[in-house]
């Protein structure tokens, strides 16, 4: 399916905050209460419409586990948007935000749009982090903030789409260089004369004879 732009996202945050569930809710509209540990990186994709333009979101869901940290860091680069997720029922996941943010800022391009997400808003009775605290943190660090529930799907669409909208605006303002793929933005096939119409032809892909290995 053709699209005007492709935006690359990453989802980061402590293990167990619901990153994979947010992705699943957004791409498949379903909730999986028991989710295996994400190892390394997972992917999801969905098409959305902003300003009458088809935009494809390619979402990289990373492992929260410390053991995989050095690997997940390398995915920050080349992302146009990031969802930084904590769990409103676990204070320590909120406390680690500074570290996540530092990591993200250090390894990503400076224009990356970061959305702060307090997940599991359906578990209000077990809440350990107040909404105001999230808002304050976001304000302080220049992030967009939202509380979501991957379980009830509350605000999940909005989280992904608002991030996309912000990226889109930055493109309109000329902040993002859309021709540099390292920014996590790709112009869709119909907009890019050189990239269209490639067929999956082994001859073209591999080349025949000549320098190999």
């Amino acid at each position: 399916m053709s699209y005007a732009y492709l935006f690359k996202y990453i989802i980061i945050g402590d293990t167990g905050v619901g990153k994979s569930c947010l992705l699943l809710q957004f791409t498949d509209k379903r909730f999986q209460p028991v989710h295996d540990l994400t190892i390394g990186v997972e992917f999801g994709a969905r098409m959305i419409t902003i300003d009458n333009k088809q935009i494809k979101l390619q979402i990289w869901d990373t492992a929260g586990q410390e053991a995989f940290r050095s690997i997940t860091r390398s995915y920050y680069r080349g992302a146009a948007g990031a969802l930084l997720v904590y769990d409103i029922t676990r204070r320590e996941t909120f406390n680690h935000l500074t570290q996540w943010l530092e990591d993200a800022r250090q390894h990503s391009n400076s224009n990356m749009v970061i959305m702060l997400i307090g997940n599991k808003s359906d578990l209000d009775s077990r809440r350990e982090v107040k909404r105001e605290e999230g808002e304050a943190f976001a304000r302080e660090h220049g992030l967009v903030f939202m509380e979501t529930s991957a379980k009830t799907a509350s605000n999940v669409e909005e989280a992904f789409i608002n991030t996309a909208r912000e990226i889109y605006e930055k493109i309109q303002e000329g902040v993002f260089d859309v021709h540099n793929e390292a920014n996590g933005i790709k112009i869709g096939p119909q907009h890019s004369p050189g990239g269209a119409g490639l067929t999956n032809n082994q001859g073209a892909a591999g080349g025949q004879g000549g320098g190999c290995c």
Partner: peptide, 17 residues
Amino acid sequence: EDEIQVTADHAIRPIIC
């Protein structure tokens, strides 16, 4: 196909398992 494409990101070189 989306996923196969993502694995072929030469700029990021994601580690796939």
